[in-house]
Design a protein around this nucleic acid. Sequence first.
DNA 1: AACTTGACGAGGG
DNA 2: CCCCTCGCCAAGT
Length: 121
Amino acid sequence: MNQVDDKTYRERVYEIVRRIPSGRVMTYGLIAEILGEGYTPRTVGYVMHGADTENVPWQRVINSQGACSTGRMTMPVNLQQNMLESEGVVFSDKGKCDLGEYLWYPDGFAKDEQESPTLFV
DNA sequence: AACTTGACGAGGG
DNA sequence: CCCCTCGCCAAGT
């Protein structure tokens, strides 16, 4: 059941990212937590690194500090933040946004009860 | 097959 | 609040 047949390892991550509404964000750790076994914040980041920027709203995935982590790449750190700001997300001078306000949880995955791993595949 | 690298994160100092 | 360490696991060398 949990094979990588119809959905590859990466596609499972992208599928969740595509659900994030404009103006909202998710963290690498949260996505890993939802996907469960075999997924960690680090691997989610690795997968996002190879995302199809055309079809995946990659800018909506940030780190647990509420900041953008795209600094190491060839693209400027500002780009991701700018894209989010144009969606209405407000960042502080230090480049952090309020996760309490913008963090988005997929349907059925309540903020308080994070115990159901494979709620939606 | 072994070793290194990350768009990470929690915990300790 | 900043810095460092360690655990995590797919991919690239």
